[in-house]
Design a protein around this nucleic acid. Structure first.
Lengths: 270, 270
DNA sequence: TAAATAGTGTCTCTTAGACATTATGGT
DNA sequence: ACCATAATGTCTAAGAGACACTATTTA
């Protein structure tokens, strides 16, 4: 990130104009704060008691923190904090994500703005939502170390259906949920939840966890054929060019794959 | 749009907490203004001097207004204005679109937030970009009636490549251009630029104007077959169930179509 | 009859979709 | 031998992609 420094040379008249311009801006009421709120998603691994090796099953969870002060004291809310003058909102989100959850350097994406009048009893506060995708182990490490705040990981459906979230955070979470489902099908964000090398079974589980409606009988065949979808995945091979296999989740070893950096362009017309 | 009224019953202690909370918010520096800027796209029809009837060719254009005061006096900029306390940013955008261009009730969609420090010499100003899609005739009517401001319609490529836009409006326009291209292929926004009934030739021209890379040799065949794409379009028929044709653009009459309300779900995995 | 658009014929190759079948190897 | 997962076989119908060809009017 490089900041832009703006140098402006002005005549006296221009300076007067500038002062007027600034005055004009200042004479209106301005918001009382511009926070960034973060919807942090993670996939947690369910314990399975199968008789043999079996595929992992996941839960899509969201991190919430319990508010300690007015307003909505005691309610669960999205982590977040106010934007400062010397940072962009993306930087705010990254800073708050790190400060409040100890997570840094992960997928962080802008979601939208929430500006409905009256959404925050503290005043005129316009919030910007981001969503982050983090692997489970990052959060586990953090939760152990942290005793400053009460944090919780909730299954998304439970958070939406059963919790009374602070502010309009239910609406934000709902929007984020729809967005991550869309992204899961349109882009390769699945890789945020997967190790560098993974089996097609794992990938399928990840997609299904985020998008329960997703079903594809011939998943393996479709992924491994398809010329138009021209290789969003590629087989992993070792130094001798032998296909690398994994039998972590099954008796029969399964081919390992990785995502390429190719994302196909979708269209409803072609 | 219905506003939400929030009623809160508080004890004295709670009221004290509330006051503290508000104080806490107030003691930080807050932005000097939160504007909404609008990227208004339209398709203008090119005059063609062909020997017989021919398909319309379009240009994708964006509306800009010339700034009259500091900063960037004389430069072209996106129309926009500041958010007021009693409205959401979407309402701001709708209001400004109407005030500055006389356009109301059209496709208006949120694009994103622009908050890089120093982006506005007037102070700490965080801008929200929207994009609007408007038919040509609406703007023509407006431009004739308006003499308050100098407004211009520029081909998008020209505005991006040759104009020095105010603030970071070039970046905003660039983002909006990418977004509209994406939307054109993923959704049915093409209908915003088309009459209720249209020929497949017209539709193809619209798509190609917004997404020059789009090319599809068997466009008609693909649109009219396809079970999976299950009818984003349907043939228009008259009261006697006869197919309705148009020979506006060709000697041979062409079937008229309309969009259904179906938008297919795309996926890179299916 | 040339021009400009609309639409069909034809051919090959690939994919979709649905199921059945086989492969693997540890408990 | 059974289990859970991985992967291939097989079949039909449909679509992709490329081009050639016909259709419809009017200037």
């Amino acid at each position: 990130m490089t900041d832009v420094v703006m140098v402006i040379v002005m005549s006296k008249e221009q300076e007067q104009e500038r002062a007027n311009g600034v005055m004009e801006v200042k004479k209106y009421r301005t918001p009382d704060g511009i926070p960034a709120d973060i919807v942090m998603f993670t996939l947690t691994r369910q314990e399975r008691k199968a008789s043999t090796k079996s595929l992992p099953r996941f839960d899509l969870k969201v991190m919430l923190i319990r508010r300690r002060s007015w307003p909505f004291a005691g309610a669960w809310a999205l982590p977040g904090g106010f934007c400062q003058e010397d940072e962009s909102l993306y930087e705010t989100a990254r800073r708050e994500l790190k400060e409040e959850t100890g997570v840094d350097g992960h997928h962080l994406e802008y979601l939208g703005v929430y500006s409905k009048p009256g959404r925050d009893p503290r005043g005129w506060i316009i919030s910007h939502a981001f969503f982050a995708l983090v692997e489970e182990w990052v959060i586990e490490k953090r939760q152990a170390a942290d005793d400053a705040q009460e944090v919780g990981l909730f299954p998304v459906r439970e958070a939406l259906d059963e919790l009374q979230l602070a502010f309009d955070h239910r609406e934000i979470l709902q929007d984020a949920y729809l967005r991550i489902q869309q992204q899961m099908l349109h882009t390769t964000i699945a890789k945020q939840f997967l190790p560098p090398h993974f089996t097609l079974g794992e990938l399928y589980q990840v997609i299904q966890t985020v998008v329960p409606d997703f079903a594809e009988l011939n998943f393996i065949r479709k992924i491994t054929s398809t010329r138009s979808r021209q290789g969003i995945l590629e087989e992993v091979r070792d130094e001798n060019d032998k296909p690398m296999l994994s039998n972590q989740y099954s008796q029969r070893p399964a081919q390992l794959y990785r995502f390429t950096d190719f994302t196909p362009q979708l269209s409803i017309y072609t």
